[in-house]
């Protein structure tokens, strides 16, 4: 996204906290993020990084008595965080849709997949049953399902994992939403099927101008489809920039360590993979400073008092990171 373009979706100061036994879990700890029209933004992180809590709060799917969600997420003049349930129902599926990792759990097992797509269509558009069914078949064809007339009559359990994921994407696309949130859409799939689904996501972006928020832990998938990348750690974005900046000229020690720990099928075969010591933070208590400091190879006393801000520091133009140490791992004065 160029700096001049008006963002389609603008997230400011988003915090998501859950009451859990023993305290309040800070799942998302204050995030600012802009999404431009028609771009694919990958949100990368490990378990507990808050990437799914972030995306679920954009569609109001993690509201409840134990959830404390603050901040704003503006889409076409609507604040998705403050919007009423009723307002959200009119937005969800029409302006912003979600595709989940586990399609079998997300689909209704007692209903034909064509009927499930039709239902989504008829929620937001005035369509006859017949017209909705015809459009459902068309959508199944668009997501690359062979024999869509027959498949529309199938129940979810009669389809393979790859096909169910395509059905989920077809439901997501039914009303041509401007924003599609795809939460680990290929994690449960084999690589050959994953390649087909990624090709489909990329085609959505080019043919329909859909903005895609891709939530993933897989850096290879990011390299394949993302235009921009935000790396999350313990509820915060620690690095953000274009795909090439974040993946091939990373600034933050966490991004660098994560990239080097990926077992690759190219390059020299290493006898030992560079691993990151320790485990990601998952509990209710967080250190006051940089959350990665306990696992970082370069921790300095300046990392400890407060969480470093996400700023443009030593990266390329437009590249932001949240590390107070400079590229040579010395302390850097923040302007």
């Amino acid at each position: 996204m160029t700096a001049a373009a008006e963002p389609l979706l603008s997230i400011r100061g988003l915090r998501v906290e859950f009451d859990v036994p023993g305290g309040r879990l800070p799942a998302v700890g204050g995030i600012d993020l802009d999404l431009g029209a028609g771009e694919v933004v990958a949100i990368v992180g490990e378990s507990g990084s808050g990437k799914s809590a972030l995306s679920m709060s954009l569609v109001g799917l993690n509201r409840g008595p134990r959830a404390h969600i603050t901040g704003t997420a503006m889409l076409h003049g609507t604040d998705l965080i403050a919007a009423s349930e009723e307002k959200l129902r009119s937005v969800r599926g029409k302006d912003v849709a979600v595709v989940f990792q586990d399609a079998l759990a997300a689909l209704n097992p007692t209903q034909k997949v064509g009927a499930q797509i039709s239902e989504m269509l008829r929620t937001h558009q005035k369509l006859s049953r017949k017209a909705a069914w015809a459009r459902s078949v068309e959508l199944l064809r668009e997501v690359g399902i062979a024999n869509p007339e027959q498949r529309a009559k199938a129940y979810p359990h009669q389809l393979s994992g790859g096909m169910r994921q395509r059905v989920m994407i077809a439901i997501g696309l039914a009303n041509e939403p401007g924003v599609l949130i795809a939460d680990e859409p290929t994690t449960a799939l084999d690589v050959t099927i994953q390649a087909q689904v990624l090709r489909l996501l990329k085609r959505l972006q080019t043919d329909h101008g859909t903005t895609i928020v891709l939530i993933t832990h897989d850096l290879g998938v990011v390299a394949e489809v993302a235009d921009r990348v935000a790396v999350m750690y313990a509820g915060r974005i620690v690095e953000q920039g274009s795909r090439d900046q974040v993946l091939f000229a990373p600034q933050h020690p966490y991004t660098k360590a994560l990239l080097s720990s990926v077992p690759r099928i190219d390059g020299p075969a290493q006898d030992r993979l560079p691993a990151i010591a320790g485990s990601p933070l998952t509990g209710v208590t967080r250190p006051p400073g940089c959350a990665f400091a306990p696992r970082c190879a370069f921790t300095h006393e300046a990392c400890l008092p407060a969480p470093p801000a996400l700023l443009h520091r030593y990266g390329q133009p437009g590249q932001l990171d949240a590390c107070v140490l400079g590229p040579d791992r010395n302390l850097v004065a923040v302007p």
Binding site: E46, L273, S279
Partner: peptide, 10 residues
Amino acid sequence: DVSIQAQVIN
């Protein structure tokens, strides 16, 4: 997770 995967592979 990727960072833990590397530890177990080693």
